[in-house]
Simulated assay, not measured.
Amino acid sequence: MSYAARKGLNRNQIKYVAIIAMLIDHIAWGVVDPIHPLLGQIMHFIGRFTGPTMAFFVGQGYIYTRDVKKYQLRLGLCALASWGPFIYFEFGYFPFLHPTIPFAFNIVQGVTYTLFLGLTAIRVWESQRLKKPVKVLCVIGLCILSLPGDWPVMDVLGVLFVHVYRERPRAMWTAYGLTFLLPCVGMALAGGLANNWFHLGVLLPILALRFLYNGQGGSRRPVHKWFFYVFYPAHLLALGLLRWT
């Protein structure tokens, strides 16, 4: 994919915008919605920036990372570290500490879990040992496994399509865009636009990445690589404490 001489934002800058958007979204879920629903909708609209953006960069990350196994391990450990804080933020308890809570509510996962499955899907697709029908079945299985996660299915297929179609920009943007746009429009319409128009904020990352991303990584200082992995579980725990105590 060529970004020749394009002015705009680099990968680090866009990731920090995505982190801020995520924080705004989670503050709305935890604090704002019960008090000011309209403001909450606006904040959720902004928050739709994060899931597709992270999927895009994980899809690119398979090529750019020095060690994909370590990259996958970081995502997996972050998902594990975020599991408890995510459930606490969402429901006010930690997994499996309340025997009366249904099992399904104990296995809910955050976005890093879904991104981990997306990166796994790329590794499956790139496997030299598996035939294509088996790869397709494995990807379907990963999509099913993503259902308890944030941005289910979307952050699996979105990651995979960014990688698979990386040499065909038109196909990549079409597949990537539709992966997020169709489900989000469907959710907005199914729930009623009056209370669910925030899902249409998914257009923000699609347009921003298509027209504002300059293809550059930015500074390679370790802080830029590790900040999200630390911030994600930490902010969930902090907002959970604010919400439930």
Rank of each mutant, 00 (worst) to 15 (best):
S2I: 01
A4W: 06
I14E: 01
I19R: 00
I20R: 00
I20Q: 00
M22H: 03
H26E: 04
D33K: 14
D33F: 13
P34I: 06
P34K: 11
P34Y: 04
L38K: 09
L38S: 14
L38W: 13
H44D: 12
H44E: 12
R48F: 09
R48N: 11
F49H: 08
F49M: 14
T50E: 10
P52Y: 09
T53M: 10
M54T: 02
F56S: 07
G59S: 02
Y64N: 14
T65S: 15
R66P: 09
V68A: 15
L73R: 14
G76T: 05
L80G: 01
E90Y: 01
F91L: 15
F91P: 00
F91C: 03
Y93G: 06
F94H: 09
P99G: 05
P102G: 03
A104P: 00
N106Y: 05
L115V: 05
L117P: 13
L117D: 09
L119P: 04
Q128M: 11
P133G: 11
V136R: 03
L137W: 11
I140K: 02
I140C: 14
L142H: 07
C143F: 07
S146N: 05
V153R: 09
V156R: 12
L157K: 08
G158H: 06
V159A: 02
L160R: 04
L160D: 11
H163C: 03
V164A: 13
R168F: 10
P169K: 08
R170V: 15
R170E: 15
M172G: 13
Y176T: 06
Y176F: 15
P183W: 06
C184D: 15
G186Y: 11
A190F: 06
F198Q: 10
L200S: 11
L200C: 12
V202E: 04
L203W: 11
L204K: 11
P205A: 09
L209W: 03
L209V: 02
F211V: 01
F211P: 07
G215Q: 05
Q216S: 12
G218C: 05
R220L: 14
R220P: 00
R221E: 09
H224K: 04
F227Y: 07
P233R: 03
P233W: 04
H235Q: 15
L236K: 02
L239N: 04
R243I: 01
T245C: 09
